[in-house]
Amino acid sequence: MSDQPPAPKLASSNGGLPSAVRWAHLLMEDRLRPGHAVIDATAGNGHDTLFLAQLVGPEGHVWAFDVQEPAVLESRRRLAEAGVTNSSVIHSGHETMRDHVPAEWHGKLNAIMFNLGYLPGSDKSIITHTATTLQAITTALELLAPSGLLTIAVYPGHDGGTQEQQAITEWAGALHPRQFEAQLIRPINRSASPPECWVVWKRG
C-alpha cells in the first residue's frame, strides 16, 4: 500500500499551483456543459480547441480562430485525429469573430478563451497585437451570453507582451461592475514577468 498522498487536482505539471492556462481550463471545466457554444479565439496548435470541444460534446460547438495558416492546419489535424467534428477552425484574426459566428449565436455564447502571445514552436516575432486584442476581447463580451465566461492568458515577458498586459489591465478596470466581474490571477513572488490569467464573468 502506497503512503503517497493523492496528487492535488488543482496543480501544475510539477505539483505547484496552476499555470495561467491551467487556471483558465479549470474555470472552463467548472462551467461548461454538453451542448454549450464557445470560442477559442487563439487556436494555436489546437490544444485549447480540442479541450473545449471535448467539454461541450457533440451537441455543442467550438469556433476557433488563428491568423496563421500552419496553426489552422495543425488545429484541424489534431481535431480530426481525435475524431472531433463539432468545431470550425477559421483562418482569420480573432478580431473578426463577429463576422464568422452566425448571428443567431451573438449574445448566446457560454465561454470565450484567449491564449495570447506567439505560436509555440514557430516564429516568435509573430505575436498577438494590442490593438486587435482589445478589439477582440471587447467583441467577446458582446457575444457572451449572460453568465458567460471570458478567460485571457497574458504573457508580459515577450516583446510586445507588456504593452498588451497594460492595455488589458486598463480595459478590465474600466468594465462596469454592474455588468461584469473581472479578476486577475498571477504569481506575485517571481522576478521575471510571469504569465497571468484574466477572468471576466458577464453578469446574468
Rank of each mutant, 00 (worst) to 15 (best):
G93W: 02
K9N: 14
G160P: 08
V89C: 04
H106P: 14
T138P: 00
P70R: 12
T128P: 02
A80E: 15
S75D: 06
I137S: 05
R203H: 14
V89L: 09
V154H: 02
R33C: 11
A71L: 13
S122M: 06
T139K: 08
T130K: 13
P5L: 15
N110Y: 01
A64R: 03
L17A: 09
H158V: 02
N14I: 11
V154C: 11
A140D: 03
A136Y: 01
E95M: 00
G161R: 01
M28N: 04
L141A: 04
T42K: 01
I188L: 15
A182C: 11
W63R: 09
P146S: 06
A64M: 13
L73N: 05
V84Q: 08
L26A: 06
T130Y: 00
A192W: 08
P6H: 11
E74R: 14
A140F: 02
P195L: 10
M113C: 04
Q166T: 12
E74Q: 15
M28F: 07
S2H: 07
I137H: 01
H129I: 05
I188F: 09
E104H: 12
N45P: 01
N45F: 09
G161W: 04
L134D: 00
T133I: 13
G46E: 05
A43N: 09
T139Y: 01
G93M: 09
S19I: 02
Q166A: 15
V89Y: 13
Q4D: 15
W171Y: 10
A43Y: 10
T138W: 01
A153I: 07
N14Q: 14
S2G: 10
L55K: 14
S2M: 06
P102Q: 08
H25V: 04
P102S: 05
A111V: 03
A174M: 04
L134K: 04
E95W: 00
T128L: 10
W171A: 09
S191F: 01
R31F: 01
S12D: 11
E29S: 12
Q68K: 07
S92M: 10
G16A: 13
A111M: 05
S12H: 14
L141E: 06
P70N: 11
Q135T: 10
P18K: 12
A182L: 13
V199C: 06
I188V: 14
